[in-house]
Amino acid sequence: HNLTITQGKLFFHYNPKLCLSEIHKMEEVSGTKGRQERNDIALKTNGDQASCENELLKFSYIRTSFDKILLRWEPYWPPDFRDLLGFMLFYKEAPYQNVTEFDGQDACGSNSWTVVDIDPPLRSNDPKSQNHPGWLMRGLKPWTQYAIFVKTLVTFSDERRTYGAKSDIIYVQTDATNPSVPLDPISVSNSSSQIILKWKPPSDPNGNITHYLVFWERQAEDSELFELDYCLKGLKLPSRTWSPPFESEDSQKHNQSEYEDSAGECCSCPKTDSQILKELEESSFRKTFEDYLHNVVFVPRKTSSGTGAEDPRPSRKRRSLGDVGNVTVAVPTVAAFPNTSSTSVPTSPEEHRPFEKVVNKESLVISGLRHFTGYRIELQACNQDTPEERCSVAAYVSARTMPEAKADDIVGPVTHEIFENNVVHLMWQEPKEPNGLIVLYEVSYRRYGDEELHLCVSRKHFALERGCRLRGLSPGNYSVRIRATSLAGNGSWTEPTYFYVTDYLDVPSNIA
Rank of each mutant, 00 (worst) to 15 (best):
F285P: 10
D503H: 03
E221V: 04
E404H: 13
Y498H: 12
D250L: 14
P244I: 12
R466H: 12
T343R: 06
V359E: 09
E465M: 08
D408I: 01
G489V: 09
K236C: 09
D503P: 15
E227D: 10
P349V: 03
T343K: 11
F372G: 05
E452C: 12
E224T: 06
E378R: 05
L440F: 08
P244C: 09
T415S: 11
Y292L: 06
D323Q: 15
C267E: 13
L321Y: 10
S348W: 08
K302W: 15
D450L: 04
N490W: 15
V397H: 15
S509T: 13
R370L: 15
C269I: 13
P300L: 05
R447F: 02
P354S: 11
H454Y: 15
P413M: 12
T241R: 10
Y396V: 03
L440Y: 13
Q384A: 02
S348N: 14
I377T: 02
G325A: 15
I377P: 00
S262D: 14
C468D: 01
V214E: 00
S474Q: 10
A395H: 11
P475E: 05
R316E: 09
L505P: 12
E249M: 04
N435R: 01
Q256L: 13
I438V: 13
Y478V: 01
P354R: 11
N383E: 02
V327D: 11
E247V: 12
R319G: 15
L487G: 02
K317A: 11
L470F: 04
S444C: 15
Y504D: 13
C391A: 02
A395W: 10
D273V: 07
L277A: 13
T307W: 09
L369I: 02
Y212I: 10
Y445H: 09
T347I: 13
S243D: 08
D506P: 15
H371L: 09
L455W: 05
R301I: 15
I438S: 03
A336T: 08
S203R: 09
I377C: 07
R370Q: 13
Y504V: 12
R390N: 12
D204A: 14
F289E: 07
Y292I: 05
S474N: 10
K432L: 13
P270S: 08
P245T: 13
P244A: 09
K302Y: 11
I410N: 02
P312G: 14
I482S: 01
E260S: 08
F355R: 05
F372W: 07
K287Y: 11
C269E: 12
K271E: 07
E227T: 07
I482P: 00
T272F: 05
Y292R: 07
V397Y: 09
F499H: 01
E221K: 11
D261V: 15
V439Y: 15
E404P: 02
C231K: 03
Q429K: 10
G325V: 13
R319N: 10
E417F: 07
R286H: 06
F246W: 12
S479D: 02
R319A: 10
V393I: 10
N383R: 04
S392K: 03
Y504N: 04
T340K: 13
A394Y: 13
A394G: 15
H352T: 04
P314K: 13
K302D: 15
C456R: 03
S474H: 08
L505K: 09
G374K: 10
G449C: 05
E227I: 11
Y445N: 02
